[in-house]
Write a protein that binds this DNA or RNA. Sequence first.
DNA 1: CTGAAAGCGCTAACAA
DNA 2: TTGTTAGCGCTTTCAG
Lengths: 336, 336
Amino acid sequence: MHRVTIAEVAARAGVSTATVSRALSGRGPVSAEVDRRVRRAAADLGYEVNPIARALRNSRTDTVGMVVPSIGNPFFTSLVESVEHVLERQGKQLFLCDARSDPAVEAKRLASLAARNVDGIILSPTHGVDSAAAVADAAGRLPLVQLDRFVSGTNTDWVGVDDTAAMRLILDHLHAGGARTAAFIGSQQTNSSSEQRLSGFHRRAAELGILVDPASVLLGEFSTDWGEAALARLVATGPLPDAIVCADDLIALGVTRACRSHGVDVPARVQVTGFDNIDFARLGEPALTTVDQPRDRIAEEAVRLLTAASQADTRASTAHIALVPTLIVRASTTAS
Amino acid sequence: MHRVTIAEVAARAGVSTATVSRALSGRGPVSAEVDRRVRRAAADLGYEVNPIARALRNSRTDTVGMVVPSIGNPFFTSLVESVEHVLERQGKQLFLCDARSDPAVEAKRLASLAARNVDGIILSPTHGVDSAAAVADAAGRLPLVQLDRFVSGTNTDWVGVDDTAAMRLILDHLHAGGARTAAFIGSQQTNSSSEQRLSGFHRRAAELGILVDPASVLLGEFSTDWGEAALARLVATGPLPDAIVCADDLIALGVTRACRSHGVDVPARVQVTGFDNIDFARLGEPALTTVDQPRDRIAEEAVRLLTAASQADTRASTAHIALVPTLIVRASTTAS
DNA sequence: CTGAAAGCGCTAACAA
DNA sequence: TTGTTAGCGCTTTCAG
């Protein structure tokens, strides 16, 4: 299985390798006649560029790296899909890595991507603090934009959703549905999404006069298991609130499932909301009211920022783009 | 942002680049003293190998490519997680690609992986027929093992689950639960999983004397939407069967959801089963009885086959490894 | 045990 | 417009 090289194409077309390179890459002057001969020869031989040789020469790979906290979380996979779609239009490849919610793994992946000379990195950081060193390091070496979450103390581009606005939408809706007390089930405050959503929750609840028992703010992780466990705890410890605001759809799915097994009626006894609008949110029982993240927009902006960063030599001021989310009303809440 | 090269390490250690290479890669004789000096210099300078240069020289990348039909399908993402886990133990990286259920995209990804000199490819093919050319081509260039599904007419290693055995488990269980008529909701017969599951279904149903109305074999795609649509069709066209066997969990989740909205009691009126045992199967209402695929085993075997294939020069006989699945009984069926 | 030198496949000066 | 040449960073003969 021999790999055809540019030299063989050159020989067959009767020109030099430089000319072949110019003809095939389309930059550099080539006469129409020679161009034709070269393309012909390349086609005959079944020539394909060797991206590795090209990368070594150019230190560019036309590849973007992406690192997400967990490929098992449907929100991130759909974000990946959006990003890949945008990149494809630019003829770039995506190199996807899973950090397995572990800053150490994440650091390895970032280093490896940088070593592989990807043209830029799109990262949704695993941890708001522990990810800092690796992120700063990677950002110092190549263009990097953070997605959805960001690491405190880093100074890179970021694009995500306005969590505070989202919480406003959610709480206003719950309030309209009659909620006067509320609980919050989220993840440990180890990432920005979690923090922003919780603080947005507290703020709007206060403004609306919705009571939040500190004991009913439960922080675990972004998973259905945690949602189930947290609801069990709420049931055990006291009277249920009118509404339970969850930091993401996985948690909310766990909560509604636990409500079913505990005989708690959703939304009649307690309203429940999610966050992200993953596909499965529709399928819960009841279907989840949630906040939709404009993934395609997020992906587009991220790629745009990356492209801009690779072109500008001067590190221009960094951008923080917070997109406005949309409330998706379904059966797990009462207001229309 | 300058990248440290082997030459700089050599200069600092007062040796040649060849010696540095030998010391750092650990092959080739190096005196203890020199070895220490080199490592010291490398550490001081923060040297990291350039994987691109190494790949160009060695035509090996320590990277395995993986192509799945859809990264949005949780079954495939969990398979990816398993594979990555196994590879990590061997110090290899995974390059993941999404074929978006499109043989044309898949072909591009395969070609691109081959061009990038990955050491091998793990593929779950999108289409049983249309994927053939690209798969054969890729398999001719480097080690390739198919996972879960396979393309007819190709001759590569394969590892997956014994679909026929799985259908036996499912139908025996449904039969024990009293089912005497059954429907099948699957995807178009464009991939082997689909075909095998359907034929396994028919065979065991016949053996057990379970009646299958040809009109109740509905083929669409692996998605919740299709599950919902198919159930609506079953409801519209006639008396429901005692059981609905779905070709994967996504379909089953759609079916149970539609059952709720159509007021069909699961499992009292109709039993429903899924396939794959994705995380969300537990969360449906009712929780899904399904068949668990031993993902970790599948991943392990796949990587093992790949490694074997890269080492043997002679293309040994190809292996087809069908692992035995396990029935997971939950609330969507009646037998215990 | 170590160094010199060639070369993986490609592209960008520089010359012609 | 085209060819010659050097070199990206690394590994591996081949001499010493």
